[in-house]
Design a protein around this nucleic acid. Structure first.
Lengths: 151, 151
DNA sequence: CAGCACCTTCACGTTGACGTAAAGGTTAGC
DNA sequence: GCTAACCTTTACGTCAACGTGAAGGTGCTG
């Protein structure tokens, strides 16, 4: 046993149920995400089992975070992931050239995409913040009344 | 014309299409919200047209804000509105009594409900904030690279 | 009072994001 | 090599949150 295992748990590939538990998703959801083009498993086993690597895991966690924490639809998440992929390609093009002007252009494009994401996130955060402020104000008024009663 | 109009535009009742435009919702959505018990129009016209007052308008804006800005489901929004109603009843009970202890209890209950709402909102905001921080960090790295190129 | 825009109540259709069952293949342990 | 646990695809089911007619009533305008 353990003939050529590449290090202690280094590049292990996981089956769908394992990643599902690690991400707190269902296997069905993961297959569905694949169905709609959000990710492809790193590989398949001899018998066609889906096999996921660490990158896939991170991607799934990203999807879950975007869905649960930011409340984006899967379609929107798809766009974000495309952005991500574009940035990755940019990164490679960046490394492949030595031309300063080209490097600058590539970085500017990446920055632009990130700024776009940030704008959307900040917009959400801002509106959420306004709501919180509203509730907090009412809460403060009640607190005030309570304090008046106590003195 | 204008025989007994109660002030300049004071207590005008609006029909569904008008409120829909004011709230940036569809008439269908508003009827649906009624269907699932989120609001009832202030009144009906002779011919059974739904008529909405300013309170209804605010309620609809609240629903929209909760749905779009905070990403709550209509079911969750229903609970929030029940909370709201409970606070309103508390307010009346508060005004109806002079017993200090009872007043304190009523205020405490209101404060508790508001704190509950705040906890849920803060939780959302926090997770959203974490995501923003992550994206901002990556944005900063790209910015750094750009600055390095420029000097 | 004719006409048009707006309203009503059904009622069925749609989209997103999965759940769930069926029928069968794969893999790890003993 | 058998079994139990896990996997595959295919396909139909479900729930929320509406969209979209159909068939008919309402209400201001000229």
């Amino acid at each position: 046993m353990a003939p050529i295992l590449p290090g202690p748990d280094q590049a292990r590939l996981l089956r769908i149920q394992e990643v599902a538990e690690l991400c707190a998703l269902t296997a069905r959801s993961i297959r569905y995400y694949e169905e709609v083009g959000l990710l492809k498993p790193a590989g398949r086993s001899e018998g066609a089992y889906r096999l996921y690597d660490r990158d896939d895991l991170e991607r799934l966690l990203f999807i879950k975070a975007m869905r649960d924490d930011a409340g984006f639809s899967l379609a929107e998440i798809g766009l974000l992931l495309e952005d991500e992929a574009a940035r990755e390609r940019s990164r490679e093009r960046f490394m492949a050239t030595r031309d300063i002007a080209e490097r600058r252009a590539i970085l500017r494009a990446s920055a632009g995409r990130l700024d776009g994401q940030l704008a959307r996130l900040h917009d959400k955060a801002e509106r959420l913040g306004a709501m919180i402020a509203g509730v907090e104000e009412r809460r403060a008024r009640v607190g005030c009344r309570l304090a008046e009663l106590d003195q």
